[in-house]
Simulated assay, not measured.
Amino acid sequence: MADFLQDYKREHQSYVTLLFCSAYLYKQAFAIPGSSFLNLLAGALFGPWTGLFLCCTLTSLGATSCYFLSQAFGKQILILYFPEKVSMMQNKIEENRSGLFFFLLFLRLFPMTPNWFLNLSSPILNVPVGQFFFSVLIGLLPYNFICVQTGSILSQIKSLDDMFSWGTLLKLLAIALVALIPGTIVKRFSHHKLEGKELIVNGRKSM
């Protein structure tokens, strides 16, 4: 199957790339699940690095399209069907307004709410589009990397020997290292939030 996809891509590279990008942007813009499948497919079709670049770029652009669509048409629908979730997210955003970018990264790395809902609700919650875009780009990088690398590895495995080759093991090690990034981001966010609380406490004490 992987060989067939590669052969088809070589013969129709522009068509395959255009079709993949269009499908990815459509899926993201209209908050349709399925990122993991498309990321795996990107790794198999385009390789680990081109696939990662495409997925990160398309994820960010598609999510931002979803942001603008929701800003134009989604407010009443979200408030009507998800009033409790919107209220909960509003409270969380306001609590972390001083460190909003790190909080958005935290939500992408360890989602307390689905990514599709975060994309739709962000304009309603007054999240700046710049912070939104880069939080998607950076926050979903580890997830995209893991999926794309996995797709690339699976497309190259043709026997059990391939599974235990040095190349495959090094790629798996890279995936494991990238999986540690979320913990580092969360630690940074927690430290930032703690500093903010200390400033508030000191400010009250000085009064």
Rank of each mutant, 00 (worst) to 15 (best):
K187T: 15
Y24D: 11
G34P: 11
S35M: 07
R97A: 14
F132Q: 08
L137V: 08
L169D: 06
A23G: 15
Y81M: 04
N96E: 04
L160G: 05
S155A: 08
Y24H: 12
C21V: 15
P83Y: 00
G51H: 08
L40R: 07
R108I: 03
L105H: 04
G62F: 00
K9A: 15
R108A: 07
Q6S: 09
T113A: 10
T184L: 15
H12W: 08
F68T: 02
F102K: 08
Q28R: 13
Q76A: 09
M112K: 01
P33D: 14
K205A: 05
L107M: 09
L109I: 11
S121H: 01
L78V: 08
Q90F: 08
F4I: 12
A23W: 13
R108L: 03
T59P: 02
I146D: 01
L160V: 11
S122C: 07
L45S: 05
F189I: 07
I32P: 12
G99L: 07
P123H: 05
I32Y: 09
L140S: 09
Y15H: 13
P142C: 07
D7Y: 07
G167M: 07
A179W: 14
G151C: 02
I77R: 01
F82V: 06
S155C: 00
I146F: 05
A63P: 02
F103D: 01
T64Q: 00
P128R: 03
F53L: 09
I175P: 12
L120V: 08
I146Q: 05
A29C: 14
S70N: 03
A44Y: 01
Q149V: 12
K197E: 10
A23R: 14
N96M: 05
L40H: 11
F46E: 05
G203A: 04
L194H: 14
Y24M: 11
A63K: 00
S36F: 12
S14I: 15
F145V: 08
I32W: 06
L141H: 04
N126S: 13
A23D: 12
S135I: 06
L177N: 14
S190R: 14
L19Q: 07
M112T: 13
F37C: 09
F4K: 09
I124A: 03
N144S: 11
E195L: 14
G47I: 07
K158D: 05
W49A: 10
T59L: 03
I181T: 15
G99S: 13
L38S: 03
S122E: 04
K171H: 14
V186G: 11
S159G: 03
Y15I: 15
P83H: 00
K205G: 02
P111F: 05
S35W: 02
R10H: 12
G196K: 04
E95L: 10
N202Q: 10
V127D: 04
G62L: 00
P83K: 00
L194A: 15
S87L: 06
P83L: 00
L199H: 12
I146T: 12
L194M: 12
S122F: 03
E195R: 13
F37W: 04
E95G: 06
S159Q: 02
I77Q: 01
G51K: 05
H12Y: 12
Q28D: 11
F189M: 07
G196W: 03
L137S: 11
Q156F: 00
T59F: 09
R188M: 13
F103G: 03
L140K: 06
K75D: 03
L18M: 14
G62I: 02
C56G: 06
L140T: 15
